[in-house]
Computed example of a mutant assay.
Amino acid sequence: MYFKKILLAILLIGLVIAGLFANYVYRVMLVDNTAFNNEQAFIYVPTGATYSDVREQLMPLLKDIEKFDALAKQKKYISNIKAGRYAIKKGMNNNDIINSIRSKNLPIKLAFNNQPNLTALAGRVSMQIEADSLKLVEVMNDESFLTKKSFTKATALGMYIPNSYEFFWNTSAKQFRDKMLTEYNRFWNDSRKAKAKAIGLTEEEVMTLASIVHEESKQAVEQPRIAGVYLNRLRIGMPLQADPTLKFAAYQLPEYKGTVIKRVLNIHKEINSPYNTYMYAGLPPGLITMPDISAIDAVLNPETHQYLYFAADATKLGYHKFAKTLSQHNANAREYQRYLSSQGIKK
């Protein structure tokens, strides 16, 4: 009888302990532990982060960080931190949170357009992924990579086609560059390559001319006509005489740093630079900016015409007037020059 009482007491104690343990497990693993009102929150875990780094981000998002610590330790998450962007949904329990931040790295949409140079592009990209701008500039300008892939520092910007792309937040600078090369090769499909060959230009030359077309006009509807003008000039050996290339050449000089050239003058035409397309015939060595896809496709699908000249349209700003003869062009140009003067724009 006494023995049975002992067994019963042990059983009751065991049940109490089991109940307490079950309650603890329930509170630690299965109870909502989120403390925010939005539908979800995100944490960004850097490469090489420690549990303390993750914990610091989690603290304002959780009701009870200590209970999370206990489960993280039990599930060995504290020694197995993985970089990435992770979502924590409202109402998640600790077990769900750990499962999410351990294995569900979420991609982001990375977008860029109209960047004037690689430094600006690196700055734009570094705002969206973990890689910093200095490292991005370094790998983008890596001479061994550029040589191996048939680019130069002057044409390297053309490897980055403006668009939106899917990346993981913890993408490294090298991973970003290499994926953009893959995207560049995908962009240059057989159809675009055939069109480039038909107009007698390489892929790099198309990108260079597209950068000039882009700077001349942001109006997609007239970009094919402008491209046709420049291709007509190239065909007959006439200098491109593109004002945007003069501005680009000027901005490389110390005296023009931090300035904005609104009016191209004769003094600009005297700058001795391979980008001075008044002084040197043919295409310049590389891009003067990042062209939109519309400008690239405008070069590949130019309008067929006999125009050799165009000037900004003073009656329809943002557009141009086209001419077949120099005399008509001079009349159009004088009209626009008068407009600039009326606005007090002298340089």
Rank of each mutant, 00 (worst) to 15 (best):
D178W: 03
Y160L: 06
S172G: 09
S144D: 13
S191P: 02
N189E: 05
S164W: 10
F168T: 08
F145I: 15
D142M: 07
T155E: 00
P162E: 01
S172N: 03
S191V: 15
F168K: 10
N185W: 03
M140Y: 05
T152E: 00
V137N: 05
R177H: 08
F145M: 09
N189F: 04
S150M: 12
R124S: 11
R177T: 10
K153W: 07
L181S: 04
R177V: 15
A131S: 04
S164C: 08
F168N: 12
S144H: 11
N141I: 07
S133Q: 14
D132K: 06
S191F: 07
T152W: 01
F145T: 13
A173V: 08
N185I: 12
S144M: 09
A173M: 06
P162G: 04
L146F: 03
T182K: 10
K174H: 08
Q128N: 05
N163L: 05
F176N: 04
A156K: 06
L181W: 13
S144C: 03
Q175P: 01
T147E: 12
P162S: 02
S150N: 15
F168V: 12
L181R: 14
W169F: 05
A154R: 11
G158V: 10
E130H: 04
K174F: 07
V137K: 11
D142Y: 12
M180K: 07
T182P: 00
E138L: 11
E166N: 12
A131N: 01
M180P: 04
G158T: 12
S172A: 06
M180Q: 15
M140P: 05
K135T: 13
D142P: 06
S191W: 02
D132W: 05
S144F: 08
R124V: 12
N141V: 04
R192A: 02
K193A: 10
T182Y: 05
F145N: 07
R186Y: 10
M127L: 14
S126G: 03
F151C: 06
R186C: 00
A154S: 15
A154E: 15
E130Q: 14
K193E: 11
P162V: 08
W169H: 04
E183D: 12
G158K: 07
S164Y: 12
T155M: 02
K148L: 10
S191N: 15
K179D: 01
D142T: 11
F168A: 02
E183G: 02
R177Q: 13
S191R: 13
F145V: 14
A154C: 02
E143T: 13
G158M: 06
N185S: 12
K153I: 11
S150T: 13
Q175A: 15
M127Q: 15
T171E: 01
F167L: 06
F187T: 08
N141W: 02
L146R: 08
N185Q: 15
R124F: 03
T182F: 09
K179S: 09
K148R: 14
E138R: 11
S150V: 14
N141T: 13
